[in-house]
């Protein structure tokens, strides 16, 4: 795995962390909670090296 690819995985993990944190902090809007989770799925699939 090249250095740039590793950096992209780190960026992916960072964005994943931000989304998870936003999901935890969201108190009222169920719509926003769903959106955070939907956006999070492809990032998680990439970090788990599934797709």
């Amino acid at each position: 795995m090249g250095v740039i690819m590793i950096l992209y995985y780190l960026i992916c993990a960072y964005i994943l962390g931000l989304l998870a944190w936003d999901f935890v902090r969201e108190k009222k809007s169920v719509n926003d909670m769903i959106l955070y989770l939907l956006v999070l799925i492809p990032l998680l699939l990439r970090i788990l090296r599934i797709k």
């Binding site: 999901f23 909670m33 989770l37 939907l38």
Partner: peptide, 17 residues
């Protein structure tokens, strides 16, 4: 609500992944 949504997202991810 959050737990239910996480469970649904996890199921979707497993079914798709």
């Amino acid at each position: 609500i959050k737990s239910a949504l996480i469970a649904i997202a996890a199921v979707l991810m497993i079914l798709g992944g």
